[in-house]
Computed example of a mutant assay.
Amino acid sequence: MLGLLLLQVLASCLWLGHSEVVNSFDDCAGFFYARIPPNDALNPKNPARICQRFNNSYHYATLYDRDRRIPVYSAYKYEPGSDKRPPGYWLVEPQLIGKNNLKEMTSEMTLINNHKFTLDQIKESQAVLDDYKGLKGLDRGHLSPSGHQCGKETKIATFTLTNIVPQDSTLNTGKWMAYECKTMPQKTQGCTTTYVITGAVPGNTYVSNNRVNRPSHIWSAACCLENKKPLKAWGAIAENSKNKVEQLSLEDLEKRLSNLYGGKVTLFNNACSQK
Rank of each mutant, 00 (worst) to 15 (best):
K99Y: 05
K116T: 06
T110E: 10
I97M: 09
N114Q: 15
P80E: 03
G81N: 00
T106Q: 07
G81S: 02
N113M: 13
I112V: 11
N113G: 10
V92D: 07
K116L: 11
K77A: 03
M109A: 15
R85P: 04
K77L: 10
T106N: 01
Y73R: 11
K84D: 15
Q95T: 08
A75E: 05
K103Y: 01
N113P: 08
T106C: 08
I112F: 01
L91C: 09
E93L: 06
G88D: 14
P87R: 15
L111C: 08
I97C: 05
G98Q: 10
T118F: 10
T106G: 06
I112N: 00
Y73F: 15
V72H: 01
I97P: 02
E108R: 15
D120R: 13
L111H: 01
R85Q: 11
N100T: 06
E104T: 05
S82Q: 09
I112P: 01
H115C: 13
Y73C: 13
W90Y: 12
V92F: 08
Y89R: 15
G81R: 04
K103H: 00
L91Q: 11
T110Q: 06
E108L: 12
K116C: 08
I97F: 03
Q95P: 01
D120V: 10
L102P: 01
K116G: 05
